[in-house]
């Protein structure tokens, strides 16, 4: 029963942003939905979901998937029987960039800053992408959560920069 209305949420999203723009989706258990959409449809998808109750950003995760960075927006429809829908988009490894969703959900801006700090994703038109969790003198090219950066290497680089 529960799963049926979960499917309906995905169907409604497909109808709004176009079937071909939803790459895949799954409902592993009650109250959890994962949907992957094309990156250029991110804003449309978030708008549709926010209008349909998914207006709470629980957090935004960034994952280095090898050939790109997957950004996961964990959106929650609050209230009893809440549902958390993880909306995934993929961006290139080099010059990774996505439009900001903080215009639709203001609370998202702090999480976008965190993803920018740790994975280097550039959120276009973000109100303030200044460092939030990394130090001011942190080397620009080191994005610590990218798999290519090993902890030892980061340590070595930071030691070289000591005193800057």
């Amino acid at each position: 029963m529960e799963r049926e209305d979960h499917v309906k949420i995905v169907e409604a999203l497909k109808l709004d942003i176009g079937d071909e723009n939803v790459i895949n989706w799954k409902i592993p258990r009650a109250r959890r939905i994962f949907v992957t959409v094309k990156a250029d449809k991110l804003i449309d998808a978030v708008k549709h979901l926010a209008e349909n109750g998914f207006g709470h950003v629980t957090t935004i995760s960034g994952v280095d998937v090898g050939d790109g960075i997957e950004v996961v927006y964990h959106l929650t429809r609050r209230g009893r029987e809440s549902i958390t829908l993880s909306l995934k988009v993929k961006t290139d490894m080099k010059n990774s960039s996505l439009p900001t969703i903080s215009g639709i959900i203001p609370g998202a801006s702090i999480y976008e800053r965190e993803v920018h700090d740790l994975l280097g994703v550039n959120f276009k038109e973000h109100p303030n992408l200044a460092p939030l969790v990394i130090p001011d003198n942190w080397p620009e090219d080191i994005r610590p959560l990218l798999k290519k950066w090993k902890v030892e290497e980061i340590r070595k680089r930071l030691a070289e920069n000591e005193g800057d």
């Binding site: 700090d117 740790l118 939030l132 969790v133 990394i134 130090p135 610590p144 959560l145 902890v151």
Partner: peptide, 17 residues
């Protein structure tokens, strides 16, 4: 305005190893 990170310990990175 807020500035955080003075206590960021890189736990997410550490978990991967």
């Amino acid at each position: 305005d807020v500035r955080m990170g003075y206590n960021h310990r890189g736990i997410e990175k550490a978990m991967e190893s």
